[in-house]
């Protein structure tokens, strides 16, 4: 048995974990069973031949962050097609003398950096830029931004990297089902998913399949079965008791005699 103090301490620990996780990873899915909206088809810069006729071009995104005392305000950005969503914590950018910072994410449909040999680019590369205003001064990413990068359904990728300072640099990332990678953007540059055949690859499920939804459905069915079983068990427990009353077993039952018994006495 837990004391009241232990219960409060446990609740406090749970609350601290919940709040810190939510604020530290704002682009991680929130609780819990919110729906995953059906995604529109991926917008390719260079679509596979079978998708070329229906493909729409990918879209850019832009935002402006205010600067107070040389430190950028908290803010977020998403491309119009939701293929990139980024979150910038307080002080993520710094730009000398700037009063605001323009941040843009642009799909690189021309001039995307070439991946290393034996490594394939998966989906689109996106150029992440930041410029301080006024004066178009270059802004520096001092903190760590969080970004969701959509990966085409049915494809495989082994890493997420940023092309900066003339080379590809691997980023910290994890898969966010069904078709996003959640990454920590430590520097500005061209961000893309890469697939190196010799390394373990994440596979993005094809359209129309989501293992998580199947598991949730199974859970719901299991819970429904438990509820039905509990109701049936309760009825089964009540049945012998009512039978005893009618048959007159036990002194208390006899006192609460059924109408049948009463009518017999009257006769």
């Amino acid at each position: 048995m837990m004391s009241r103090r232990e219960v409060y301490l446990l609740a406090l620990a749970g609350l601290a974990l919940t709040v810190s996780a939510r604020l530290a990873l704002p682009l991680a899915p929130p609780l819990y069973d919110s729906i995953t909206l059906p995604s529109a088809p991926y917008r390719w810069c260079s679509p596979p031949s079978d998708l070329a006729s229906s493909n729409q071009p990918p879209q850019p995104g832009k935002t402006t962050l205010k600067v107070d005392n040389g430190s950028s305000a908290i803010g977020s950005l998403n491309t119009a097609d939701q293929q990139v969503v980024a979150f910038f914590p307080q002080g993520a950018f710094s730009a000398a003398g700037a009063s605001s910072i323009d941040v843009s994410v642009t799909p690189m449909c021309a001039g995307a950096p070439t991946p290393p040999s034996h490594v394939a680019l998966v989906g689109n590369a996106y150029d992440v830029e930041a410029t301080g205003k006024p004066g178009n001064v270059p802004a520096r990413l001092g903190g760590q931004a969080q970004m969701l990068l959509r990966i085409p359904a049915g494809s495989r990728y082994s890493t997420i990297a940023v092309f900066a300072d003339g080379r590809w640099q691997t980023l910290t990332w994890s898969a966010q089902p069904p078709d996003y990678a959640n990454l920590v953007l430590a520097r500005l540059g061209q961000v893309a998913a890469l697939n190196e055949p010799s390394r373990h690859a994440q596979r993005v499920p094809g359209p129309g399949f989501n293992a998580g939804v199947i598991i949730e459905a199974a859970l719901v069915l299991l819970a429904a079965a438990i509820i039905i079983a509990a109701v049936l068990a309760q009825r089964a427990r009540q049945k012998p008791a009512s039978t005893r009353v009618r048959r007159g077993f036990g002194p208390s039952d006899a006192r609460r005699a059924s109408p049948t018994r009463k009518s017999k006495r009257r006769r």
Binding site: V7, L10, A11, A13, G14, L15, A16, L17, T18, V19, S20, A21, R22, L25, A28, P29, P30, L31, Y32, D33, T36, S174, A175, Q176, P177, N182, N210, A211, G212, V213, I215, E216
Partner: peptide, 22 residues
């Protein structure tokens, strides 16, 4: 919740699970 939301959702769901358990 990992199959649906990925391992990135684990800390939040753990904290929430504790609170609901309390």
């Amino acid at each position: 919740h990992i199959p649906l939301y990925g391992a990135v959702a684990l800390p939040l769901d753990l904290g929430t699970g504790i609170l609901i358990g309390v």
